[in-house]
Every structure is written in structure tokens, then in C-alpha cells.
């Protein structure tokens, strides 16, 4: 008997399930906690919905900077990606002209730490929502 597994084409149900998962992850990224709320984990979803945007707002209030995507400067680019992890809040902050960042401010680096970590934590929340949807948790 051969040990090799032959590829099995995905069924329509599997394809629609993976489409739902993508949509769930997208919703969870755009609005922190939305994925958990969607899955009925109300307590977790509400905590993420309040805590992560609040953390991002504190970062902006502390004169943190919303970094631009400058491919020439790798560290700035990585910081921009990390901040983008917070989803819609990032775009709202940008649209409102917040996050100019004042390097001279004493709190500048603290603000950046809040902004970057809020984005990265939201990415963890997206992964958690994915795990819950897959039944791993």
C-alpha cells in the first residue's frame, strides 16, 4: 500500500467555510474584538474592543507617531506594519491627522511603544479568533 496521500479537491462546504474564516479574520483585524463577538465570546470581544483602541489612543495622546511605509528604512516599515495591526483605528487616526509624533516630547517613545504593541496584540487577537473558529480552543 502506498504511503502517499493523493490530493483531494476541496468541497463546496470546505471552500465556503474557509471563506467565512477569512471574513472572520478580516473583521477581527478591522475592529478589535469583532471576531470574538461574532463567535459569541462576548466577554472577550468587549474587553478587546475597549482595551486595544484605548491603548492606541493613549499612544497617540503620548505624542507617538504613526509611521509611514518607507521601504528604504526597514525599521520604520516594520513599525508601520505593527501599528497597522490595529486595523480601522489606524486609518481613523491617520485621517484625523493624529500621530504626527513629536520627537522632542518626553513621552514620544512611550507613545510609540503603546501604538506598536496595541497593533501587535490585535494580531494575536486575530489569531486567537481563528483558533476559536477552527475549534482548537
Amino acid at each position: 500500500m502506498s504511503d502517499k496521500l493523493s490530493p483531494v479537491p476541496a468541497t463546496t462546504a470546505e471552500r465556503s467555510q474557509s471563506g467565512g474564516l477569512v471574513l472572520l479574520c478580516l473583521a477581527s483585524w478591522v475592529v478589535p474584538g469583532a471576531g470574538h463577538l461574532w463567535l459569541g465570546r462576548r466577554q472577550k470581544g468587549l474587553i478587546f474592543l475597549v482595551a486595544l483602541p484605548l491603548m492606541f489612543a493613549i499612544g497617540l495622546a503620548l505624542e507617538g507617531r504613526l509611521f509611514p511605509f518607507q521601504l528604504a528604512d526597514m525599521l520604520v516599515c516594520l513599525e508601520a506594519f505593527a501599528e497597522l495591526g490595529i486595523g480601522a483605528t489606524y486609518f481613523v487616526g491617520s485621517a484625523l491627522g493624529l500621530g504626527a509624533g513629536d520627537v522632542r516630547a518626553v513621552t514620544y517613545e512611550y507613545g510609540n511603544a503603546f501604538l506598536i504593541v496595541a497593533g501587535l496584540l490585535n494580531l494575536l487577537v486575530v489569531i486567537d479568533a481563528y483558533d476559536v473558529a477552527k475549534g482548537r480552543k
Binding site: K44, I47, A51, L54, M55, Y110, A118, L121
Partner: peptide, 17 residues
């Protein structure tokens, strides 16, 4: 302390049900 609070909160909520 505020930073530690938020990070602890999110990690704890992710890790435990």
C-alpha cells in the same frame, strides 16, 4: 504601569476562558 496593565489584560483574556 498602564502599559503593563493593558498587556496583562489582553494576554490573560486570550490565554484563559
Amino acid at each position: 504601569a498602564l502599559f503593563a496593565f493593558f498587556v496583562s489584560l489582553v494576554f490573560a483574556v486570550i490565554a484563559k476562558d
